[in-house]
Write a protein that binds this DNA or RNA. Sequence first.
DNA 1: CGTGTTGGTCAACGCTTGTTGGCAACGTAC
DNA 2: GTACGTTGCCAACAAGCGTTGACCAACACG
Lengths: 197, 197
Amino acid sequence: MPDRPSSGTESPARPRRSDATRAAILDAARDRFAAEGYERATIRAIARDAGIDPSMVMRYYGNKEGLFVAATDIDLRMPDLTAVDRDGLGERLVRHFLDVWEHDERLTGMVRVAVTVEAGAERLRSVFRDQLAPVIAAVCPVPDEAAVRAALVGSQIIGMAMARYVVRIPPATGLSHDEVVAWLAPTVQRYLTAERP
Amino acid sequence: MPDRPSSGTESPARPRRSDATRAAILDAARDRFAAEGYERATIRAIARDAGIDPSMVMRYYGNKEGLFVAATDIDLRMPDLTAVDRDGLGERLVRHFLDVWEHDERLTGMVRVAVTVEAGAERLRSVFRDQLAPVIAAVCPVPDEAAVRAALVGSQIIGMAMARYVVRIPPATGLSHDEVVAWLAPTVQRYLTAERP
DNA sequence: CGTGTTGGTCAACGCTTGTTGGCAACGTAC
DNA sequence: GTACGTTGCCAACAAGCGTTGACCAACACG
């Protein structure tokens, strides 16, 4: 029953005829999870979007949680901060996140799901741990402080994302990119480079 | 059919025998909504917690959304900032929110629901508009800027709440109250009193 | 007393959900 | 050409959901 996507240490795994279907399912799943959260995104709706039968989803991804895990591998495309002027770290990061957030609605979806189901929360924690924290640690003089500084930066970024993209609080949605940068960059800069208070 | 809680312009509405039941339902609903979000918190479970039949919930609150609305009237208990030293506004606010957040798990619940269903998002927006924004406007020299400043403060507060209480990102959960205040107070202070950049 | 209102239970409804197993068509290798 | 793995659809399952209406017990009031 070599039916699931072969994981890991094998040869390039020659393409299957069903690859297109698999991709269509993932695409539809990402959209639905992002737009409606975990519970309201039904397997039936995802299958309908993908133009196939719900049972195919089960065959390829086992169950709903398996589909969710497969559909939400987030890549923040973090820049290399060691190449950035030390005083420009805050602005660089804020601009990067504004860009990423508006071009990948999966992030909104991940937040939505992270708040709802434990598997989603773990996903968000892992993104923090594996993508944000290391990049920040690379520019943090005291390694022990890197995790806390990353969490602080993340708190402000997530908070603004909630205000702008998830809950859509009017004054926050009305800010231009430059205004957001002007307000948030000093905050992030301080979380990164200020002495521990 | 004077069965629903009489709304509005009447005499003090003498207590009914069912007040205890109504309160038990609300209590259970708050807990469930906070812990599990809107969809997973089932009316049946809430009724079971309250020790009554599910149909009572319908009778007293109409439907699930009505129950949700009744169960999530949040009061931030905002302090009067005009009585606070201008340089201490940031610390005062951060401490207040830390306190409120840890003593009322309804806030976590509201965030959870705000992210999931539109009625919840509207609830959170209204808390911003009716409770946070006015208090901040009272200490904001330029009235036009009050809404934006409130949104900025809110973004940092919600972000930290997400990190600490909802998603539970380890470095954020590990911070003491004093550490959170030391890091966040200057941010909030700047959002409140700094010139518009 | 009797009568109407209130507080509450019970059993069921229609519906949707995730999930399963059987079965037909296709492609490929021997 | 025939055997076999793959791809897909179909129909159904059991469970859980929100919601409804009939019905009973206790109280309040004349």
